[in-house]
Design a protein around this nucleic acid. Structure first.
Lengths: 206, 206
DNA sequence: TCAAAAGTGTTGAAGATACACCCATGG
DNA sequence: CCATGGGTGTATCTTCAACACTTTTGA
C-alpha cells in the first residue's frame, strides 16, 4: 500500500505562424532548473485528474476552457530524480487567440514549434511525441481539428490546421469535399476581408 | 505534494466458446467483499507500471507472457470507498491455452463472457467498456488479433477471433482477402484435422 | 454417400486521388 | 490593372461489400 507522488503534465498545442506549436515553461526550481518543461504539477487529494490538469494549465499559463484529453500515464521508477513520480499526461488544444499569462509557479510560458523544440526536462520529449502522434491520428477520424480554431473560421484556415498537424500539403478541392460530406461545418453569412477576395466564414456544427 | 495510492487493474481477454470473455476474480476482502472485480493491485515503490500489471496478473491468475497495453487512468476522487486511489488500467490478450491458477490474494479467477458480466466492484464496469472499445478499434488497424491465438492457427480461427471481438459475422472471402493483402500471415505445410476437411495452418509473420 | 467445414472470383458502389482554371477584391 | 488567395468538377483508381458454389475428408 505504498503511496506515490502523482502529477499531471499537459501538452498544449496551437497553430501559430502556419505551424503546430506547443507551450513550454521554463523551470525555476530544481531538478532541471532553467530547463524547458511541460506545464503540470501535483495532483491534490480531493481533485480528479482532469481537474488537476485544468488547474495546472490555468495556474501556469492562464489558459482556460480548452479541449483536454488524457493521453497516457508514464510511471518509470527513475523518470524523476526526486523520487517516484507517476505522471498522467494530457494533451490540450486551443485556438491561437488566448492570451498567455506568466504563472506564479513557473516562468515565461511561451510557444515553441513542434519541429524544433529545445531540450526538455524529465521524459517530456517522449510525452510530446506521444501527444503529437495521437493528435495526427485523431485528426481525421474525429473533429479535434476544430478545437484549434476560433468559433468562426474560413475553410482555408481549417485546411491550414490540418496541414500543420499532418506536416504535409493537402489538395484544396479534395479537402473541401471531404469536409463538406462530413457535414461538420455550416456556412455563415459573413466574410473575412483580410486577403484579396473575401473568404466565407463557417462554424462547427456541434 | 500529496502522495496517492496507485493501483493497476487489468482487463484480460480471451476467446472461449466462440465468444469474447474476460477474467474476473472474486474479492475476499472489503470493500466490495464477494463481488467480482478485475485482477489488479497496488503499485510498489520501485516497479514500473507495466511491471506491476504483469506481477498482479501472475500473482492473481498465474497467467504470464501476455500482450499487455496501457489503456487509461481512472482517478475520480470517490471511485474507491477506502480513499483516494488512482488506477492505471491495462488490457491484456491471451490465447485460450493458458491454465488459470487460483492466486493467493484473490479467489477463483474465472472467465466470463463480455456480453453477460456480473455486477463488478468499483468502477470496473467502466474500465471493461473502455477496454472492449479499444480492442474493437485496434483490431483492424493493428495486429492484436493474433495475440488471442496460439502460434499456429487456421484462417477460420482467425476469423472467429475477429467476429467474437466485433460481435458480428464477417464474410469469409472478404476476410481472407483482407488478411492476405496485409501479408501478416504465412502458410505452413501443416493441416489441422479436427473437422472434416483438413484446414491449413498459418502463423503470424512478425 | 453424406454432413460439415474448407476453400475460392467477380461485379458494382463508394471513396480517395490527381489535376487547372476563373473569380472577386484591395492596393 | 494586377497580384493574391478564394472558389469550383471531372476522370481515374483503389477499396470495400455483396454474393454461391465446389472440394475434401471422416463418419
Amino acid at each position: 500500500m505504498t503511496k506515490l507522488l502523482v502529477t499531471v503534465d499537459i501538452v498544449l498545442f496551437t497553430i501559430r505562424d502556419r505551424e503546430l506549436q506547443l507551450l513550454l515553461i521554463k523551470r525555476l526550481a530544481k531538478p532541471y532548473e532553467h530547463r524547458y518543461a511541460l506545464p503540470g504539477g501535483f495532483v491534490e487529494e480531493h481533485e480528479s485528474l482532469n481537474a488537476a490538469a485544468e488547474r495546472e494549465l490555468r495556474e501556469e499559463t492562464g489558459v482556460k476552457k480548452v479541449f483536454l484529453e488524457q493521453l497516457y500515464t508514464f510511471g518509470e521508477p527513475k523518470r524523476d530524480p526526486r523520487g517516484r513520480v507517476v505522471t498522467v499526461a494530457y494533451y490540450a488544444l486551443v485556438a491561437d487567440t488566448q492570451v498567455l499569462q506568466a504563472g506564479t509557479d513557473a516562468a515565461d510560458p511561451a510557444w515553441y514549434p513542434v519541429r524544433e523544440l529545445p531540450a526538455l526536462a524529465f521524459d517530456h520529449r517522449k510525452i510530446v511525441e506521444a501527444a503529437h502522434l495521437r493528435l495526427r491520428n485523431k485528426l481525421d477520424y474525429s473533429n479535434v481539428g476544430f478545437e484549434l480554431l476560433p468559433e468562426k473560421f474560413t475553410l482555408s484556415e481549417l485546411q491550414l490546421v490540418h496541414e500543420a498537424v499532418l506536416g504535409e500539403a493537402l489538395d484544396k478541392r479534395n479537402f473541401r469535399r471531404k469536409i463538406a460530406q462530413k457535414a461538420l461545418v455550416e456556412p455563415l453569412e459573413e466574410y473575412r476581408h483580410t486577403g484579396r477576395k473575401p473568404a466565407q466564414l463557417f462554424r462547427f456544427t456541434s
